[in-house]
Design a protein around this nucleic acid. Sequence first.
DNA 1: TCAGGATGCGGACTGCCGGTCCGCTTCGAT
DNA 2: ATCGAAGCGGACCGGCAGTCCGCATCCTGA
Lengths: 194, 194
Amino acid sequence: MRSDATRNREAILRATEELLAAHGAEHISLDRVAAAAGVGKGTLFRRFGSRTGLFQELLAERAAALALAIETPGSALGPGAPPEDRLTAFLDELCELAERNLALFAAHERACAEDKYRDPTYLRWHAHVTALIAAARPEGGLDAEFAAHALLGSFDADLARHVMADGGVARLKSAVRGLAEALLEGAATPRTRR
Amino acid sequence: MRSDATRNREAILRATEELLAAHGAEHISLDRVAAAAGVGKGTLFRRFGSRTGLFQELLAERAAALALAIETPGSALGPGAPPEDRLTAFLDELCELAERNLALFAAHERACAEDKYRDPTYLRWHAHVTALIAAARPEGGLDAEFAAHALLGSFDADLARHVMADGGVARLKSAVRGLAEALLEGAATPRTRR
DNA sequence: TCAGGATGCGGACTGCCGGTCCGCTTCGAT
DNA sequence: ATCGAAGCGGACCGGCAGTCCGCATCCTGA
């Protein structure tokens, strides 16, 4: 990649962040982003392919640290720790990420409304959570993949905003944690069908 | 309302259904709907206010029978039955509704992406599920409102389609049921924090 | 250093869409 | 039959995602 291309790529990402911070997820047209980055629209599309691509890449950037953490042994997040702890720690981190990036989450959701299940970041999260649920409760009568989707549904931007509006991240964390614990507990002792 | 207004209203709703059935949730522009209904665009907007209003009304129509059922005593759905049974029965019905109206669910989601928590039908469902969870497990350490959102997240059109693609409604039903039961069980015996 | 091909740039342009507007038509109460 | 109110329709507007191509910039090889 040519040096000006690299520079422009960065300028576009930073401009997107600025606009998100300034105006929320609304009214962020790609014309605006390009203008704010001091770049032509063609450049934006050349780099990111589409609106979807832009927000996917921005999210991937913001989620990179977390992606690394879940692969690095040595913390409650990483390999080696008990799956229940890894799950809780991961969800806590996701709460923090959601709080710091609410506008990005919202914009990303909108942009990826089509095939949201093909976003690389979401796929990574989903695979991770599925594996942890399956590891924590292999005997449960729970569909781990499905449960993982449901759990990650907690980070829908509107839902998260709604919950945090009254209680902040703390409330979101405890609500998500409650959900996760209930899931794992419940799965361990499936209710008998009547 | 004048008789021609009533007739047009109906024509628009039926045309929307036809287009949803024929083309899925994609490419349903309001111009197309109006044309298919044999009506001017102005008429459509006069009746429904916006794209959002159109899909909200169509969903409300499709959900009317269920709304009635949950208020009518005499079945597992209605008042009088144990909350666990009411919840399971309600979720089962929602699965059926989702199967029969996948395209509508998808279009509705898109159209109501903003303030999805202000849609009357969703609000009714959410209030119902919240009340049932609270009734079934008053002692649980679970945030009933939040859990209800998570549970209803199962009916996200993309998720439902994904699950039903491999196993049909039966799989969706059992996955949702498993989730609900796990939630209620888990909430009954909250895991001790370490 | 410099020349020239490869890479990238930018913004005018296209097609589409949600929503508005207003002169004209139709309805139905009297 | 009359007439005001209610409703109609489609041209019109502003805005947006994505395309295209003539021109500028980069950087490599000599």
